[in-house]
Write a protein that binds this DNA or RNA. Sequence first.
DNA 1: GTAAACCTACGAATGTTTTCGTAAATGCAA
DNA 2: TTGCATTTACGAAAACATTCGTAGGTTTAC
Lengths: 128, 128
Amino acid sequence: MTAIIKPTESELEILNILWEKGPCTVREVHEVLEQNKDAGYTTTLKLMQIMHEKSLLLRDASSKSHIYTANVSQQKTQGQLVKRMIDNVFNGSASQLVMQALGHHQTNKAELEEIKKYLEEIERLQSK
Amino acid sequence: MTAIIKPTESELEILNILWEKGPCTVREVHEVLEQNKDAGYTTTLKLMQIMHEKSLLLRDASSKSHIYTANVSQQKTQGQLVKRMIDNVFNGSASQLVMQALGHHQTNKAELEEIKKYLEEIERLQSK
DNA sequence: GTAAACCTACGAATGTTTTCGTAAATGCAA
DNA sequence: TTGCATTTACGAAAACATTCGTAGGTTTAC
């Protein structure tokens, strides 16, 4: 019965900030957003209000500046987005996505090792 | 100067069909689409016309039924979408995406082996 | 040749996302 | 207390995505 999480691109930007920084006011979120693009304060406010309506965010309205918190986990959201990409873009093949990701992006040695370990663990689990 | 490819979800469905089947008429594309969802014929037509305007598709209008061809490669499109996901969802970490993809999806032994080989090749290249 | 079937073009309605202006409320400082 | 800065609420515009009806042209079958 897991709810379908489908944040838009703007919503994702806001979620990323909240995942990183924890509970924030609109002002705090806005100041981070401003570093990468320019949009008015009320735009950020409105977005976060809509996200609250959609239950993507929780809101503590007890002080003057409301405090917002992500109401979806980063893990779960990432998982759903990856699943959707595998289905829609890679015809269901996770390994195709993996190779695409490894092929075109800088991945340092430590990360590669980590992935390798992870692979071996999966194989161990599967062979049981 | 690589153009930014940003197909919508519906457009991606159409691209997938054209990548798989090669050049198609609207009718042919529509018949495949119908298997998974119901939309009218003119909806598919309109979408493909818009994709042609955007240069996502090429069109041969020499016969009565125009023949459309994908004008963006599957490789390149997948690459861009993956890059965007890494940036927007995984804060730039390809390995995070890889592990998310491996963790939550069935990947059979052959695929795992393929990925492992791929990893080793990357390491070989890097160590030079 | 005529009718039926099929195709394209086009406009418009609908829904969603993003943006921002304005007004009202709240808290703070002098 | 009065005025300024900050905040929320709200409405609406603008952009984009999706859907479909209708009109008009072309081909096919009889």
